[in-house]
Amino acid sequence: METSTEGGAAAPAGTEPAETTTRAGSVAESAVPAAGATTPGTTPAPVIPAQAPAPAAAPAASRRAPARPTSLSPSRAGDFMQCPLLYRFRVIDRLPEKPSPAATRGTLVHAVLERLFDAPAAERTAPRARSLVPGQWDRLLKNRPELAELFADDEDGSRLAGWLEEAGQLVERWFALEDPTRLEPVEREMFVQTRLESGLTLRGIIDRVDVAPTGEVRIVDYKTGKAPRPEYAEGALFQMKFYALVIWRLKKVVPRRLQLVYLGSGDVVTYDPVIEDLQGVERKLLALWEAIRTATETGDWRPRPTKLCGWCDHQEFCPEFDGTPPPYPLPLALPFGAAGSEEDTQGRMGPQ
């Protein structure tokens, strides 16, 4: 659940990247397909939780404090590729963003699908899943009281009722795409983290991990939007390949299948990665991280205008909208070749 076009600067329908799309029934639900692609010379093994537990939410004040980037997730990698200035606003300035009904609905649906697997297999029915929606919404409100702002002007409760009904419909549509009575996930909402040889730390949260009796691994991610158009094929699976890379580096197992379940359109997108795919993703991430480090040290975060700008919360700070970014909160490195004493340079350089 790491990334979604429903969060932050949301994408209009059909602008998400895509991959080969298949309809329900194209993938066996009880286990990952038997033919596998694993690291040569290794024995497939079930995925187990990463060494570090998921980090607890920090207090609001510390979330807003400026910070030097220390790791990379699929969401933040996507931010930088979409717009370096957006990355700065979210990671370094930590500017607040208003909750959106679409993003919050996605969070709610994910919570329902996660909790459904607490029930015995025979009780994982569509009516039961729908019945979880109100309770999970109450739980979400308790943990994030600011979400009440979404329906602050909903005097008669009709907008909230309609919104909850939409969430219920998305949950129910999932049953036409997968059969939860035949699934026993090894992990749900699994936090993963690994440190590459380069020193770059990769981290994220995987919606679901299935492991076949043969040891083959399937990574599954739920999307509450619609499946993207084919011309965005490569981008759609970037997040999933990111997770596959982390699993490979952690467990020495190449996941057999990556699966995106699009509840908005009723599509299932699958991809079977090989080692060369993951090596390519790692090279891309290393180049991306080097660009992020350079921007962090120089303060050169340039906006990259796209159609997604219309959904951005930070237009008032963006030069593309005649805004001015807040003062850069981190120490800057001297430009390459600039004159200055060693003491000046050391005083202005951030941690390496």
Rank of each mutant, 00 (worst) to 15 (best):
V220H: 00
Q279R: 11
A52E: 14
S100L: 12
R64M: 09
K226N: 13
L250C: 01
L113W: 15
P273D: 04
P40W: 12
G323R: 09
W137G: 11
V112Q: 12
D322H: 10
V211S: 07
V32T: 13
G157V: 03
L202F: 07
E172P: 03
L245H: 02
P127K: 08
T194K: 05
R128K: 15
P303D: 10
L108W: 11
V254D: 00
S341E: 11
Q82F: 06
L141G: 12
S30P: 01
K98P: 03
T345E: 12
P120C: 13
A295E: 09
P17M: 06
R283L: 12
G266E: 01
L140Q: 15
Q82V: 08
D138F: 04
W163I: 05
P55V: 14
I219S: 01
E282Y: 05
P69R: 11
A212K: 07
A176I: 00
F80C: 06
T294C: 02
V281R: 03
L245S: 01
T43N: 07
S198T: 13
V281P: 03
D272K: 05
R64N: 07
R249F: 00
S100I: 02
D179K: 11
A56N: 06
F191D: 04
Q82L: 11
P59C: 13
Y222T: 14
R293E: 15
P228F: 02
W301V: 05
P96Y: 10
R256S: 10
L113E: 06
S73A: 15
A60P: 07
D79M: 13
F242T: 03
A65R: 14
A37D: 10
G280S: 08
R218K: 08
